[in-house]
């Protein structure tokens, strides 16, 4: 890979992100729609890069984008990525929060009846209505899962919101792949079940006798 081109692209994206973050702050319509996918894609790419370079015994650079984005996203100083697990933990939580905020915004917009429609749909919504509802249900379910099993919840977060693979999670957290996979499979099924129940996608199991008179 051409590092110079990489850096160029990154700073271009970083510039764009900064610009849209500004617009978001000013309450400009469509900013969130624009930002979320941009940040999401970038964060995941960075996360991936991080690992790849690590594997290739490179030191991870804190890119301009990471600085820009995280300064705002996390409301703190530049992130130290020496602690890789901490870095990914932060990424996954931040992304979850971004997505949930986004989903709530969508929901508000949808329920904001009576008002003139906000003209932000020039941009294809990042999440469909269903997906937005799922994100919110998932947020609740994850909170419950966290109480049941912290590690399983973490694995799901890393997988869903930092885009790490099973293998990558295992590496970054010094766990066996088997353990991570077991957590992932169980937690995923559990969460799907919870989300489905929450959204009223009822299963036909346990047919209840219908009462008639």
């Amino acid at each position: 890979m051409d590092e110079e081109a990489d850096q160029k692209r990154e700073s271009a994206v970083a510039g764009e992100v900064t610009e849209w973050l500004g617009k978001l702050k000013r309450g400009e319509p469509g900013a969130l729609e624009k930002l979320v996918p941009m940040l999401y894609g970038e964060l995941r790419r960075i996360a991936r890069e991080n690992l790849r370079r690590e594997r290739a015994q490179h030191t991870l650079r804190t890119t301009a984008l990471v600085n820009e984005a995280y300064l705002r996203l996390l409301g703190g100083g530049p992130i130290s990525v020496e602690d890789r697990s901490r870095f990914f933990g932060a990424v996954s939580r931040a992304m979850q929060r971004v997505l949930a905020d986004y989903a709530r915004a969508r929901r508000r917009k949808k329920r904001g009846s009576g008002q003139a429609p906000i003209p932000l749909e020039e941009v294809e919504p990042f999440l469909s209505e269903q997906q937005a509802e799922e994100i919110l249900a998932l947020e609740d379910a994850l909170a419950r899962l966290e109480k049941l099993d912290h590690r399983a919840a973490k694995v799901v977060r890393l997988r869903f919101f930092a885009g790490l693979t099973i293998e990558e999670i295992a590496q970054s957290f010094q766990l066996s792949e088997r353990t991570v996979r077991r957590d992932w499979i169980t937690a995923r099924a559990w969460l799907r079940k919870e989300v489905a129940a929450d959204l009223g996608i009822m299963s036909v199991l346990g047919p209840e006798e219908r009462q008639g008179r």
Partner: peptide, 17 residues
């Protein structure tokens, strides 16, 4: 949008009953 400051991310070290 603040990160949870307590998330030290050692997986499995959560406070769980």
């Amino acid at each position: 949008m603040a990160e949870d400051p307590h998330d030290s991310s050692g997986v499995g070290d959560g406070q769980v009953t």
